[in-house]
Amino acid sequence: MKTHILILTAVVAAALGSAQTVRPTPRTADGKPDLSGVWQPGSDKPGTWEEANQGVGVAEPGQRQVRKAEKPSYQAWAAAKVLDSFNKRAFDNPVARCIPQLDLGGNEGSLYPWQFVQTPDLIVILVESRHVFRLVPLNAKHPEDLDPSYLGDAVGRWDGDTLVVDVTGFKEITTGLNIHTDAMHVVERFTRVDYNTINYEATVEDPKALTKPWKVTSKLMLRPGTRLQEYVCEENNQDPAQMERLVKEGVTTRK
C-alpha cells in the first residue's frame, strides 16, 4: 500500500512537473503574446529569484553563460580606441559615471530585473539598474527630429509571436570597452516561448565603427514576486574620483 502511494505520488508529481514545463505563453485580448511581468535577463532557470539564483545569479568564472555575445569586429580606428581602454583597465568606462547603456540581453550579469508593461500600442521596459525606462511604441516610425540619446529611440512591431524592436538615434560613445558611433542600429527580438521564458536576440550594426554586424543571444526568465526597486546611481558614486586618483598613480596601466 505504502509503495502504491509512493508510486502514485511520483506519477502526480511528474505530471505536475511536465504541466509546469509546457505551461503556455499567456496572450493579451488582441491575441499577442503577453510579455508583462518582471524578468531576469541572462538566466535560463525558472522560479522565483531566490529559487533560481545561488546568491544572485552572477556566474562564477568558468560557469556557463546564458548570454552569448560575439566580439565586435571593429574598424581600425575603433579597435585602437578599445585596446587603449583595455590597456588602462577600462578606467574610462562611462558606466562608472552612472551613464546608462543599452543592456543587450543582460550584460550586467543578471543582477538587475527588468519589468515589461504592455498595452496594445506601447510596450514599456523598466530596468532597475540606473533607473532606465525604454518606451517602445508599436507600429510607429522613428521621429525625424531625433536628438541622439544613450539608449536610442525604439519602435516595435509584432512579427508573428516575436516582438521586434528597432533602435536608432544613439549618442556616440568612444570611451570604455563598448564603443559605438551615432550610426549604431540595433534590432532586438523578444519571443516569449513559454510561460517562464523569453528568448532574446539582438543584432548590432554600426557602419562607422564596425566591419560587420555582431549578435547577442540570451534568455529572460519570469521572476514571480520580484519587484523593481529604486536605484539612484548618483547617490554615493565614489568610482570616478577613485579612478582619477588611480590613473594619476599609474596603477591602472596594464604592464
Partner: peptide, 20 residues
C-alpha cells in the same frame, strides 16, 4: 587562484573592476 586562471571569462563583475 581559480578566478585568476579563468580571468578571460567575460563577466562584467563590477564596472571596471580591474581598474580599481
Amino acid at each position: 587562484f581559480t578566478a585568476a586562471l579563468l580571468a578571460a571569462v567575460p563577466v562584467l563583475a563590477h564596472h571596471s573592476f580591474g581598474a580599481e
